[in-house]
Simulated scan of single mutants.
Amino acid sequence: MAKWIKKSATTMVVVVGLGLLAACGSDKNNESGASAQAASSASSSANAQASTGAGTTADAQTRTVRDEFGEVTVPAHPKRIAAIYLEDYLKALGIAPVVQWYNPNWGKQDYLNLDVPLFDNSGSIEALLAQSPDLIILDGAIDRAAYDQYSKVAPTFRLPESVLQDSGQILKTIADVIGIPEKAESVAAAYEAKVADAKAKLAQAVGKETVAVIRVNVGDRTIALFGAKNRYAGSILFDDLGLTPHPMVEKMTEFQEILSEEAFSMLDADHIIVIPSNGDWKTAENQDAFTLLDSPMWKSVPAFKNGHVYKVDRSYWQSGAITANGMKIDDLLKLMVK
């Protein structure tokens, strides 16, 4: 990467600290371990679902599916699902999760308007254990060690790396795992129609004008530039909607990079989307952080000169899920299509 950019930690979803899990979940571990052992000895049917490698066991109460780390036995018809940082997809499929992901530093995904207990992933596991999920679905930030700890609470499916950059594939995979693949088809069809309509309108309104997404970090007062392959913003903007990334954005190989001050004026994009690192733009902290962009360097770039700097909601712009992406499309049409 060029010298005008400094590397930063990139994964938005913090790997959950579950040090207490082995002690708190020992009884559940014994129960789920026995269940898994019994299920693994049952024969699988020949009709496996290709997306998950699923097979229904002889008693039809469980299925064997393949996730990122191998085969796992899951309920054939789960009733209490915890989808950590994937609640968006459950809601799109018409299912209420038993808990909602929460971090005290970032809050939760308020746009989902869920009325369920919060699971504080910064260390506490009380909420997750108390809700007794019969299936846990995990996002890509979870490594094998954390996965093994989750598995002591309930059967756990970790999304394969191969689907993480595509919200449609994530939706399909989750629907397959919980046994409602037909619902994913109808949700995906409506979403694809929305994308196609927006892409045509944006092409006419914006053409080849360049676009960049930045985040103003309140804590350390820095500015992060999102790369073209950023799964929360880049994929929907550039891959799905066909917008043109600024050259700095297009060349990035990282999820995000911290911009040095001398790089500000080099980001001469035609349109700049700005996200706060926490909360919304109404807070005094975020209003103060936005003053980082109130400098002669920034004022010289086309986006600022032409009034094409857009403040958007962090809650769904830092999510790559299907409901969130639909809300981003609504924002882009409102902001860019006159």
Rank of each mutant, 00 (worst) to 15 (best):
A54W: 09
L118S: 03
N113F: 15
G279P: 02
D67N: 08
D120H: 00
K7W: 09
V211P: 01
Y232W: 07
L114T: 05
M266L: 10
V177F: 10
N306E: 14
V74P: 02
D143M: 00
E192L: 14
G53F: 12
G94N: 14
K251T: 02
G19D: 14
A145L: 06
P104I: 02
G219I: 08
G123C: 10
L86Q: 01
M327Y: 12
T57E: 07
A76N: 13
T222D: 02
G107F: 11
Y150A: 00
V16A: 06
C24Y: 08
V74A: 09
S167T: 06
F69A: 12
D143L: 00
I214G: 00
A321Y: 02
D67G: 05
D240G: 05
D134A: 11
S124W: 12
G33K: 10
D134M: 08
Q165A: 01
E262L: 08
T222E: 04
T57L: 07
S167A: 07
A228E: 03
S32D: 13
T11C: 05
A224N: 05
G94P: 14
K6Y: 04
V301E: 13
V153G: 00
P160Y: 11
E31V: 13
S124I: 11
T283F: 07
L114R: 09
K299F: 14
P75F: 13
I95Y: 13
P276W: 07
M1D: 10
S295C: 15
L164S: 03
A2M: 06
G320N: 01
L237M: 11
K229N: 02
V65K: 04
T323R: 13
Y89S: 02
A92F: 05
D240I: 13
P296H: 14
I137R: 00
N121L: 03
K208D: 04
I137T: 01
A205H: 10
E182Q: 07
S132C: 09
A54F: 10
A38Y: 12
Q318M: 03
D143Q: 00
I236P: 01
A200G: 04
M266T: 04
K172V: 05
S162N: 12
E126T: 10
I178W: 12
N103D: 15
E87C: 00
G33Y: 10
I273W: 06
L129A: 04
T283K: 02
